[in-house]
Design a binder for these strands. Structure first.
Lengths: 222, 222
DNA sequence: TAATAAGTTGACACTTTGGTCAGGTTTTGA
DNA sequence: TCAAAACCTGACCAAAGTGTCAACTTATTA
């Protein structure tokens, strides 16, 4: 089974002539992400993924041994961007700015990556069966780190006492909702498609409500 | 096709001898709810639903013409309990009590009905394709009604200004999260299964945060 | 440039699964 | 009591879907 990447080094600094293997795998994963997101694991058809990636089905099986292997690869890929928005929750910032930025970043991310967001949500609802131990551990570690930041802010009197873990759950759920449950959000907001303004108002509402609830009296800006 | 319910009236006031048709349909829908929730529409197998409801597959098809018909029936059933918690948001209550009760009721409902909750979430993520026009209209109507209540509270100076629709989205997402995304919640809370205490702290955190953020200064109880 | 590795692909094997059906049994109602 | 309606079910089918394979072409490298 000649499925290992060749050991040949890159000839060019630029990736102008991307290697066949890399390109095909990338195309397959891209198509798979889209289709798994729309149809779920069971609903997705390999033939459809193949067509969407411009390859015959047998060629897809040349790179991946099974449907499950493709799915795992896709999921693993998703996790990579999971904690980007979390970077805003950093000890050296003022909680007000940090939380506001986090909410804005998370909403913006889910808006720009609806497909990935839904796929992730779907995987979790199904019991996170294909999320590797390593990935889950990573998520836990990052969360713990940020919990610590919140706790320090509380200890420093910069935030009213709150359970940081439940706080993160609140923020996570609120910011995911618009992308993951778009039909419900649309119904609630009397629109047929979420627009830029809807996301702005969402960010504003979440930020204001949460911050007014967490900042000591007299510390609300803007 | 003798698939209409018989016109015969109930002989007994009590439903002791439940009619065959009613019982079987109930069993099928019960099993189907469970299995659709765990596996999704495509992942669910009619044979499995049949087995779980104690009927041979062909018998399931005696009552339902297709998989889709079963699924639709299940979804329609779900909607029935959708607005129960919303009853707490009523104009004649104080916003503080009303919102607190709503959060508690919603959390309690999702906890007691995890299966239904996940199935519903799943259906929405997939684009709410099988939610009937009527059901969506119903949800919109109920929401509008409650939006009005919030607006009146704001007008009466009992709540700080907030977009009621986005507020509902916040509450809805936060209260759904624990049941729908249990694996994530467990990771975040460092536990393997959500316990009663976790739900209490969740209710407390959501209520306190939101209420402190919405009530005019000096109106927080507890 | 020749030999080996990597990539390609149509056709096919095999399994699963939604759905059907003919002929059976039980229930109902007059 | 008996005919009609309702209910039941094993056996079957066609379609769809995953995964395989042998033969082929293209790329690499010594």
């Amino acid at each position: 089974m000649p499925k290992q990447p060749s050991t040949k080094a890159l000839k060019n600094a630029g990736e102008i002539d991307e290697k066949i293997r890399a390109r095909n795998i990338r195309e397959i994963l891209k198509a798979a992400t889209e289709i798994f997101s729309r149809k779920g694991f069971d609903g997705a058809r390999i033939a459809e993924i193949a067509e969407a990636s411009g390859l015959p089905k047998a060629n897809v099986y040349y790179y991946f041994a099974s449907k499950e292997e493709i799915y795992r690869a896709v999921i693993e890929h998703l996790i990579e961007g999971w904690d980007d928005a979390f970077a805003h929750i950093s000890a050296d910032r003022e909680p007000q700015d940090a939380i506001r930025s986090y909410i804005a970043a998370k909403l913006s991310y889910t808006r720009r990556n609806v497909i990935e967001s839904r796929l992730f949500a779907n995987e979790i609802i199904r019991g996170a069966q294909f999320l590797s131990r390593k990935d889950r551990q990573h998520m836990r570690t990052v969360t713990d780190e940020k919990v610590k930041v919140i706790e320090d802010w509380i200890a420093a009197g910069k935030l009213l006492p709150v359970d940081p873990r439940h706080l993160f759950i609140m923020l996570w759920s609120a910011t995911q909702f618009y992308a993951d449950f778009e039909p419900l959000a649309c119904d609630a907001l009397h629109t047929t498609k979420l627009k830029s303004l809807d996301y702005s108002v969402a960010a504003e509402t979440i930020s204001e409500t949460v911050l007014r609830g967490l900042l000591p009296v007299g510390q609300m800006g803007g």
